[in-house]
Amino acid sequence: MQFSVILSTAIRYMLPLMLIFSVFILLRGHNEPGGGFIGGLVAAAAFALYSFTSNLDEVRRALRVEPRTLIGSGLLVAVSSASLSLFFGLPFMTGLWYDEPLPVIGKVGTPFIFDVGVYLVVIGVTLLIVFSLTEEE
């Protein structure tokens, strides 16, 4: 597949920017529009565009982990964050918060970790589909 030089040049600079942007969206989600789902979509779009311009091995190297692993670990993060409250004798999925806000990230609590899980799952799902389709070439 041949894509334009413009896209392949631009994506080199856009990939890190889009990834940072996706994390930004994930972090602000709790108080401003954003969140794990949108963040995950943005990050996935970044890798999808990258996979247009380079061969798949390169993209996989850049991603470092298998998309399937991302789905699994995302689900694991989500379930663990939700189960944490069980250890404190509270019902499943009760939000637990660390009182002091951390710099940059802001307040940390189980709902936030849950959102991170969503973020990972969304990236994994999208990229698994994109990679499978690209591989079929």
């Binding site: 989600g29 709790h30 529009p33 709902p111 849950f114």
Partner: peptide, 14 residues
């Protein structure tokens, strides 16, 4: 209850 200003996201994750 959920320490978030974004109601949509709070509904989603909490």
């Amino acid at each position: 209850l959920a320490k978030g200003h974004n109601v949509v996201n709070v509904i989603l994750v909490d």
